[in-house]
C-alpha cells in the first residue's frame, strides 16, 4: 500500500464516529462576522494604518515626481507612461538575476488591492507589478495605489483576488520582533515602503 493509501485509510478509520451520510456542508459554519463596516474615510484610514507600520505615504503627488527622486528604478511591464516621465528606468527584459536586482536603487509598481483596516497592499503579478522577486530584492519599494483599488476589510479584498495568481500581501516594510519582542523595521525585504495614493 502506498503512503497515500495508508494515510487516507488512517484518516477514514479515525473518523469512524462521523455519520456516514454527513456531508461537509452539513457541518455548520456561522458567518456572522462583518464583510464590511462603516467608519472613517477609507483613504484616511489606509493612510493612518500604513503610517502606523512605518510606511511613507503620499496623497495625490504625481508618481513621476516621486520616482525621479529615487534613482534607477525597476519598472514592471504594464506601467503607465505618465508615471515614468524623466525617470531612470530599468526593464526586466531579459529577466535580471537576483544579484542584478540587488544593485538597483528601487522598484516602482502598482498593486491589485489595498486593505484600509490593516494597512495592507496586495500584489498579484498583474499590470505594473511583475514577478515577485522584483518587489523583494531591491531595497526601496515605491507602490502606487489607485483610490478605486482600496477596500475596507479583509473579506472585501479576498473577493477581488484571484487565487490562481501568485499573491504577495505587504503591510509596511520588512520587520522583525524576534529580539525581546521589539519591532525593528528592515530585515530581508525592502527596508523602505513608500506608498503613493492617487
Amino acid at each position: 500500500m502506498s503512503s497515500r493509501e495508508t494515510i487516507l485509510a488512517r484518516v477514514r478509520s479515525a473518523l469512524a464516529d462521523i455519520p456516514f451520510a454527513e456531508t461537509p456542508d452539513a457541518v455548520p459554519v456561522p458567518r456572522d462576522y462583518a464583510r464590511t463596516r462603516t467608519g472613517p474615510d477609507l483613504i484616511e484610514l489606509l493612510r493612518d494604518r500604513l503610517v502606523d507600520y512605518r510606511a511613507t505615504v503620499h496623497l495625490d503627488t504625481p508618481v513621476a515626481e516621486l520616482a525621479r527622486a529615487r534613482g534607477r528604478l525597476m519598472v514592471p511591464p504594464g506601467t503607465p507612461d505618465e508615471w515614468l516621465s524623466g525617470v531612470d528606468v530599468v526593464r526586466d527584459d531579459p529577466p535580471l538575476s537576483p544579484a542584478e536586482l540587488d544593485r538597483l536603487d528601487g522598484v516602482l509598481t502598482g498593486c491589485a488591492v489595498a486593505i484600509a483596516e490593516t494597512g495592507t497592499i496586495v500584489l498579484d503579478g498583474g499590470e505594473a507589478q511583475g514577478r515577485r522577486a522584483l518587489t523583494l530584492v531591491p531595497d526601496h519599494h515605491l507602490c502606487v495605489v489607485r483610490r478605486d483599488q482600496v477596500v475596507r476589510t479583509v473579506p472585501e479584498a479576498l473577493e477581488r483576488l484571484d487565487p490562481t495568481r501568485p499573491l504577495t500581501w505587504i503591510s509596511g516594510p520588512s520587520a522583525t520582533s524576534d529580539i525581546e519582542l521589539n519591532r525593528v523595521e528592515g530585515v530581508h525585504g525592502p527596508r523602505t515602503l513608500e506608498v503613493a495614493i492617487i
Binding site: E117, R132, T164, L167, T168, I170, S171, G172, S174, G189
Partner: peptide, 18 residues
C-alpha cells in the same frame, strides 16, 4: 500571534508559480 493587524508579508501561491 504577533498582535499586529496584519503581519508584514504573506505569500500565497498555487502549484508551480512563475
Amino acid at each position: 500571534s504577533t498582535g499586529e493587524r496584519m503581519n508584514p508579508y504573506t505569500s500565497m501561491w498555487t502549484g508551480a508559480a512563475e
